[in-house]
Design a binder for these strands. Sequence first.
DNA 1: TGAAACAGTTTAAACGTTTAATGCCAAAGT
DNA 2: ACTTTGGCATTAAACGTTTAAACTGTTTCA
Lengths: 385, 385
Amino acid sequence: MSALREVAQRANVSLLTAYNVLSNAHVASITNEIRQAVLDSASNLNYHLNITIKDVAAQAEVSIATVSYVLNNSVPVSAPTRERVLEAAAALNYRPNITARNLQASETRMIGYAWHEVPPGQMNPVMDRFIYCMALAAESAGYHVLTFTQPRKNETRAYEDLIRSNRVDGFVLSNLKVSDKRIPHLIDMGVPFAAFGRSNNQVDFPFVDVDGRYGIRTCMEHLFERGHEKIAYLGWSLVDERVHGYFDALHSAGIKRNPEWVVRTHDTLMEAGNAVHPLIDLPEKERPTAIVCASDMMAIGVMRFLGSVGLRVGIDIAITGFDDHPMSEFLYPSLTTIRQPIEWLAQKVIDLLLAEINKVQLPERHIIVPPELIVRGSSSQYFAD
Amino acid sequence: MSALREVAQRANVSLLTAYNVLSNAHVASITNEIRQAVLDSASNLNYHLNITIKDVAAQAEVSIATVSYVLNNSVPVSAPTRERVLEAAAALNYRPNITARNLQASETRMIGYAWHEVPPGQMNPVMDRFIYCMALAAESAGYHVLTFTQPRKNETRAYEDLIRSNRVDGFVLSNLKVSDKRIPHLIDMGVPFAAFGRSNNQVDFPFVDVDGRYGIRTCMEHLFERGHEKIAYLGWSLVDERVHGYFDALHSAGIKRNPEWVVRTHDTLMEAGNAVHPLIDLPEKERPTAIVCASDMMAIGVMRFLGSVGLRVGIDIAITGFDDHPMSEFLYPSLTTIRQPIEWLAQKVIDLLLAEINKVQLPERHIIVPPELIVRGSSSQYFAD
DNA sequence: TGAAACAGTTTAAACGTTTAATGCCAAAGT
DNA sequence: ACTTTGGCATTAAACGTTTAAACTGTTTCA
């Protein structure tokens, strides 16, 4: 017998009355005596309001199977019975217990996402928006996002624990590293996942990514169009796909590469500023008139450095970034940059992951989208010596 | 009979051998024939490797109850049996199924956190770090964080769904609004929660918060010390506790309030910049020599505006912010600001929430911490006309 | 008229844990 | 020698679902 029904019986009232009392509903027809009787009966039975399928079944006077069939539309049920069940469920404000459902289905409808460690003094607003959009996409498919932390040492441990203990059905990976250990490990365990970003791993796995090479190329073409010819590139020290966009553009413009104008450093404000020092120290005639940066962070560092040595960004020298960092619009001058379609990427990575989880074949497991150039003050003036 | 055991029996091998084959372990003693037999047997039974407590029990030759007792240390078990169970669990790399455990315990060990909508072009790096630290604190107590999105209309709906469907045990609230509807609703439903920030609700609820009034006061005292006397304040249009720190400081310094020097606007770069326009338009003698801002965002907007009208921040006019935004260190000049102990606040909000969930009384449910002044270039010079 | 088909419903098993209740057996107490 | 005790281990119920299998009563058809 359902627990609520027992409470109701002992108090000698209907199941619905008991529910109304216990859920603090304002129902005029319930006298104080009845209310008290129900409360006493509930406290005697040590019952804490928790509507289950049994309560609905009792109220509708059918079996729990019938309730399940109606609510899941999984088996045809006669109209009158169906009606009764739906009424009962609505009256009791029933919600299925997800834990029980998950146990039965041996799934969790949870997606794990490792929160990137944000050290004090850093930020990653693009990822913020990515996570938000991912949660939105997941929810519209009946999933939720579990964010967990990923310790430095033994990165794969958290993943294994979550999947083995049935906390999640799969993962979304981001911030892929060179030879990322998580990828072979997850593949080895047969765990569904999809990534935001590529890696140099030999194995094949589903991912979404932005075409950074194309993005940088559009920056270059924009600068050519504004009259620049002496253009430097500031990128990462490790694997950098974006630099090829720089080379591509130089090549099609018939401009010879100058190795000294390809500067590599870490993706931080300070280091980027320092890294371009040698370029700026050159005599004016030999100095680049524009610098294409692989990230907004770097571009901001460069702009700050240029300001401190008295060069006017947008006039004396053009700068472009990459990411469309929320701040870039409000810099002085505002920063020309490359915007990634974050909402779309988040939706797609969830699509890929759900396909993996449900073992459906998608026509394409590698989604690479071209980003969009946003022209702003830091590069918009026509340049001519 | 446990499923794995059945696979092993049909293939005529030991349970452990079956496990090793199915988990792709490299064990020299397993011949290809044996491997194939196990794989066949598993595929006949349609078995997907999933070690349960039954497998451990079978391997250790005890009942599942004994396994549970050993692993949870809940009931004394003789040393030899204990040993056997631990060995079996380790050999099979067993992890309890959390879903099953949760169903039994009717808890989820999940904490819900509503992801603030990050509109394109905005960011909230302080909250980033807060969520990260919260996840860390939760995990060290055996909980996980579920991040969900909160639609504009009907904000409380998502909360009700998550709690009623047993997805989470409680919530952490942030971004509290004036007369926040979530608070009475959660209290009404008897749902455990704890907040980051206060609200003007009349009801009592557990929260952590930063003492903004104190923080602004320390900014003011710092400015007095650097020789400023004509200080303006830029804050929010709605409820603003921080402005009282401004008034407090003026009062103890014996300086009369000037209502025109208290400017109120929205917390965005653009609007903050525009809002101080009238102050700067004043003749130099009547103009404030310092502006205390209620957020770094505002301070950055103000700095950008001052730069565009040719005033040198840190020399002609001092600026202070609030939040220690990651960027504030890298502005030119760097921004004096107030740092909140985010890690500590996150830990405390989890402590409060877990106390609510487990119905333990904590000595203090209202935690207000004084923040820390970080002096940087925007206000460090001694000022004297 | 009896068997077969069918629609509508219920029964009961299963998912993987925890844990109260029970059982077993040897040692201790009468 | 017979009960009592106590240590250890097992049995079985419970958590709240889903769903295959079984059942019931009516209609259809030979």
